[in-house]
Design a protein around this nucleic acid. Structure first.
Lengths: 325, 325
DNA sequence: GGAAGTTCTGCAACCGGTTGCATGAAACAT
DNA sequence: ATGTTTCATGCAACCGGTTGCAGAACTTCC
């Protein structure tokens, strides 16, 4: 069995409270005693039990990270960054996948609540009301969704869409389609709002569509029917699917139609043509979310929700080119 | 503040122990009392505190999952499956990324130990000795590494390599290259052992190589110099890189050279040509690992390590074709 | 009608820490 | 020499549960 604080106390002839303080408030104990205790603790392989500590302090030093789908290539970099960032601050993180199911999401949050100091919700599927309700029990930071009264991390896809369209305009494109995402998506709405606000282009909005490779593939005919020279897709998976669909129909990318995606997921760098895309700051989002969350945790009841908007940028690769003559 | 067991006890006029039993040993309490307690608990929004429970029972109902790199596309499906499987058994899982650093790995295991009932180590970078040492403190299951005396989940890449080569032979290929992975890799060794044991082919082993897209790209010249008609790569990333490198040199895949990868990661399904590959049962590995781990946890000290070997299979797509005339 | 079981509930100690308060000793001020 | 601080440590209650033991109430059996 692992050594406990009492084993250390016995072995070093001091009271358990002294051992406790040696670890959690070292300045309160005589350097001499402290060193002796530390030496013996080291010797016994003692490590404080975080769960036990949490019981009295109310701080578990754990975070929860809830995502809709771990294997969606968009999330792993975020998870990785969040986890690494948390570790530097001496926090461990529970990662849970809801499988896009709001019910699972809710249950997960509820069972996790007691074990964590805060929860990171990425692209939640739960209703606003449900989230607000759950937010009473545990601090939240929401990523990729606007929620009043909650700390939020957003990625500026509106500006990303603008950058993409400007890039297309520079290449001479004027008739541009926006391949929209799922109906309720905040991201999708941001993109179309931004696109609609741009002057000098003729915009067709196609969709809603399923945000998958298949969704893009299925939209190929609609794109052709729209008679455009360039397409901005809701995400890279759709863009990849679209390129594939166009290819099947003998339409060259970017020869006849230019395609821009959003996300900058790994596969986009590996397909041919390599995808021009709006890069989402996923790592930064993970780190920022952890920062906001710990800030919230530290502030206790007095916490004020913060909003972080992170910049996106355009990565120009090979799926965009000059408008054909 | 969230309701505790004492709040429920007070509100329902019974002793805390009765409330406790209502949740952890329902058959010991009178159905009438039980229902009353349950109703009041529900009313108060009471949920047992797992950390507190762990203190007395010694079971945290948490698992640790340690991987070298979350954003390596190979891992997310495994993480997802493991997490989902664990959830069904009422376990939460800490996910930690070591960034390929053995030191971080060790530290992570040590700090996690007290908070989990067991740890899943995926493709560990730690020395065998270190792992065995740490294994004294907490049950382990190791994925993708052979370790005596420890529960292990392996994927049968040897047979995968055989299947791939047989497929190539059916297509008429005889001069085949194996693009090896990193020097110390168990997987790489399994593959080359299997390939060497096959009759009727002329095998060139090229490498070791970095197991990345870049590693594959950089190997293009070596492949051409080897004068082969087909290549089996250590993993999909390398295969994709190789296809790219060959393309740059005007060599058609599969027209002049066929390429087979290993892993079946998402990008391989999206590149063109779509990659023929040996699918690794990553989801099954995640589930199996959790099963073995919980088995170990349940057995306590008397646990006997188990070894699971999972079958791989070949997925034929577009990067392999008949040997050119 | 009393002994022997059952079934249910309460009591209290315990898990591994933390922390407010009390105490004793040493250091300083007067 | 005395009073006042400061410093280091011990004491004991507490965090939110679990569990062995004991006893009360109720059955069952002879």
């Amino acid at each position: 069995m692992a050594a406990t604080i009492r084993d250390v106390a016995r072995a070093s002839g001091v009271h358990v409270s002294t051992v406790s303080r040696t670890f959690s408030a070292p300045h309160l104990v005589n350097p001499e005693t402290r060193n002796r205790v530390l030496a013996i603790a080291e010797d016994l392989g003692y490590r404080p039990n975080r769960a036990a500590r949490a019981l009295t302090t109310g701080r578990t030093h754990n975070l929860g990270l809830i995502v809709a789908d771990i294997s969606n290539p968009f999330f792993p970099p975020l998870i990785k960054a969040a986890q690494a960032h948390a570790r530097l601050r001496d926090y461990h993180v529970f990662v849970a996948d809801t499988d896009e199911d709001p019910q699972v999401e809710e249950e997960l949050i509820q069972t996790l609540t007691k074990q964590v100091d805060g929860v990171l919700l990425c692209s939640p599927r739960l209703s606003n009301r449900a989230i607000e309700k759950l937010g009473e029990d545990v601090p939240f930071v929401v990523v990729n969704r606007r929620l009043k009264g909650m700390s939020t991390v957003l990625m500026d896809v509106g500006n990303g869409a603008r950058l993409a369209i400007e890039h297309l305009m520079t290449l001479g494109h004027r008739r541009i389609a926006l391949l929209a995402g799922p109906a309720g998506s905040w991201t999708s709405r941001e993109m179309s709002d931004a696109a609609r606000a741009m002057d000098g282009i003729e915009l067709s909005i196609l969709g809603p569509n399923s945000p998958t490779e298949h969704g893009g593939l299925a939209a190929a005919d609609a794109v052709l029917a729209a008679d455009v020279t360039a397409v901005l897709a809701y995400n890279d998976l759709m863009a990849i699917g679209l390129v594939e669909g166009l290819d099947e129909r003998g339409v060259e990318v970017p020869g006849r139609i230019s395609v821009v995606g959003v996300d900058d997921i790994v596969p986009g760098r590996l397909t041919r043509p390599k995808l021009t895309t709006v890069a989402m700051p996923t790592e930064a989002a993970g780190r920022t979310a952890v920062d906001l969350l710990l800030q919230l945790v530290g502030a206790g009841e007095t916490a004020t929700p913060a909003l972080a908007t992170l910049a996106t940028h355009l990565i120009i690769r090979d799926s965009t080119g000059p408008v054909p003559p």
